[in-house]
Design a protein around this nucleic acid. Structure first.
Lengths: 242, 242
DNA sequence: CGTTCCCTTGACACCGATCAACTCTGGTGG
DNA sequence: CCACCAGAGTTGATCGGTGTCAAGGGAACG
């Protein structure tokens, strides 16, 4: 069966040959489970496997000498943790699970051979890597040039769009299993201030948030506050086969 | 002759086959010049060419609705402006020249065929793309979890290391042709505050800065202030040929 | 020799950080 | 079943790092 979040994501913008989908699913047969808040890969590691999130949330992060943490990406189902290491020698940051997580471990060797064996899939993975980079740029814009209210609104818009891609949005609800502290570490804020901004978003009638589920009540209003333009997620249709 | 900053950069970590170097130089024959502070590529554009900086500085940036600008990358000789568009359809951000600039325009079609024609070079460009992404992560860390003093110190350390790679550092001096406002837009600060932080770095005897040239007087001290760990620039030796 | 761009400086304002306490919830073990 | 505890969310008071505004100086340039 081809129920794989990465395939769902890739097929929102293009079509993959069946053999490639088959190959991708086959290669995800080594699944490991992690409980919440465990380091999956540490900075400096040289993993022999590429890790793909199948279920649950994880995060990329770095620590600065003062001990403060910056989360540089939320990894949701369909996201790779460390495609890098097919080219680079070692991890320059760490990955931690946020919730209990199922991760597919794919031998790096298999990934390295992909360009010869499955060129379409390779192009598709390039696409997802470049979208990840665009997301990172947008996070930098939030940290640098949006105020806290806009930044919180923006990340909610982004997560909504990204989760929709992998089929994890029902109506206007989706699971948001991150603590306010984790949100703060992603946005470069404090948990206390994130709390106040979320309250403001609720008071303004834009969102509803309870027990780890977010409901977007006024999608347009939220996007307006955030200055959210989804084109950086590159929803435009592509051809992976050339 | 093979005097190309990209080749210099790539060869700091690995060896390229002569044919690949030759091919790279050949493909850089269409050079265009831009004066300072001109948009080279605009958000939304669908360029037919990939742009490579040969001389001068450029910057990637995005604007938010309030009109504020976030620079998401400084592009120095040897850096690509938009390798993305070999896969993605359109630019999700703009590129501007900072100084007068010489840019090689390489047909996107040629780049798309690279994996078949020059696999080693393709791996080398993958490497440089992944390093760019690592730089971006580090900028996010600066914007989110370093104070202004540390952030300014950090970007100076980074630029020092990156420029060294392409042979643009003489002793401890290098050209730093960015205004304090551009630095501020890169760091998510204001020009006034960047000014004060630079003065502090000078007062502490860490750097000297005059007429667009920076001298690092106390390299260790500067790295200490910044919490700079160059491993994210991936200086480790690689093999591009497999 | 005026104009423009960039750097510099000072006074003041404000956004978000910090600190501390309290609530609520779910889990765990006696 | 209850006592206890840890983690997460919430609130208020206060502090401080950066932003904002405004003015002046110097260098480059036409």
């Amino acid at each position: 069966m081809l129920d794989n979040p990465l395939i769902r994501k890739l097929e929102t913008v293009g079509t993959l040959p069946d053999v490639d989908k088959r190959a991708l699913v086959d290669v995800c047969d080594d699944v490991r489970e992690f409980s919440a808040k465990r380091d999956i890969i540490r900075e400096g590691a040289r993993p022999d496997f590429v890790h793909l999130v199948l279920e649950g949330w994880a995060a990329r992060y770095k620590l600065v000498p003062s001990g403060r943490r910056q989360i540089t990406a939320f990894l949701v189902p369909g996201d790779f943790c460390d495609l890098h290491i097919t080219v680079l020698q070692q991890m320059d940051h760490s990955i931690t699970s946020i919730t209990p997580t199922k991760i597919a471990c794919i031998p790096a060797k298999v990934m390295k051979e992909l360009p010869e064996t499955h060129p379409s899939l390779t192009r598709a993975l390039w696409w997802s890597t470049l979208v990840d980079e665009a997301v990172l740029r947008e996070w930098l814009v939030s940290a640098g040039r949006r105020n806290a209210y806009e930044a919180v609104a923006h990340i909610l818009c982004e997560l909504h769009a990204r989760l929709k891609r992998v089929g994890l949005v029902e109506g206007h609800h989706f699971e948001l299993p991150v603590t306010q502290e984790e949100l703060a570490d992603a946005l470069g804020l404090t948990a206390v201030h994130v709390n106040r901004m979320l309250q403001r978003l609720r008071m303004e009638g834009l969102v509803q948030l309870e027990k780890g589920r977010l409901a977007v009540l006024d999608s347009l209003g939220l996007c307006k506050v955030a200055g959210f333009d989804p084109s950086y997620l590159h929803p435009e249709k592509l051809r992976f086969d050339r």
